[in-house]
Amino acid sequence: MSSYSHPARRRHLGDKRLIQMFIIPTVVLLILMNVFPLIYSLYLSFTEYSAINPTPPKWVGLDNYKKVLSDNLYWHNFAVTGRYALISVSLQMIVGFGLAMLLKEKFKGSGLLTTLILVPMMLSPAVVGAFWKNIFNPSFGIFDQFLGYSDPNTAPEWLGDPDLALWAVVIVDVWMWSPFVMLLSLAGLSAIPDYLYEAAAIDRASAWFQFRRITLPQVMPLLLIAVLFRTIEAFKQFDLVMGLTGGGPSLLQGTQAVNVTETVSVKLFRLAMPPQAQTGLSSAMAYVVLIIIIAISNLYIRALNKVREG
């Protein structure tokens, strides 16, 4: 040990220095780009402030949160998001898992088919939104044609009808993201060893019994992960809505006009950006969304751990 010469030691950096040199830039960047905005926006959520106004933030305590949580106008956006997330994620799970069950057995061309099914997932949501806007168009879109409506005057106006608009967004989201659920399900299904089914066949289990007692529990961890990812994404839904409906159409609810597809993220965007630029209020709303997402994620992760450990 003492035979190490000192000059040699000085020329090289110690492990500790090296580690610090690699980590410090990352940490600094993280603090500047993530931690600081997070804390600063938390502060702003307790103030009345507009980013385009020279007036400094004015402390208003919980007023913003009270407004977000009690005003029907905002409550509507949460309700839309919740309904959207529930319907969309459920459908994606059913369609995605169904597709995975069909594609589980290899057949000629199944690889190509799987790849083709994955294509929607790889497109930009802005592009998908623009395309489906045309597809849903009652006068020249193919969607209504497929459904058998040839007369544009009687064909349903998917994006303009307050009863249908949210479903239209759901349909596009399901089209785009069911493949993701399928991919995760396929990974889960193909990881189930064949011998479990052999053992079950010997144990005289019917196909349904095997599905319920072996297939489902074995893929459950991956299904939960798919649900978790898709729910978080659904709660953040912004780009598809902006591309398809922009949050509309409007509907008179009591005395208030509400936008039927205006998700929380769309509302946030409107609040935060000019002309409204209500920075304080939108920060509060963003924090409410963050807390909801953390809460849901925790529930899922708990469920996941329960499935894993039993």
Binding site: Y195, L196, E198, A199, I202, R213, P217, Q218, M220, G310
Partner: peptide
């Protein structure tokens, strides 16, 4: 009844 070399127990049960 069949007894497998690698047991083939249902791992989630």
């Amino acid at each position: 009844a069949f007894v497998f070399q690698f047991f083939a127990l249902y791992s989630h049960m």
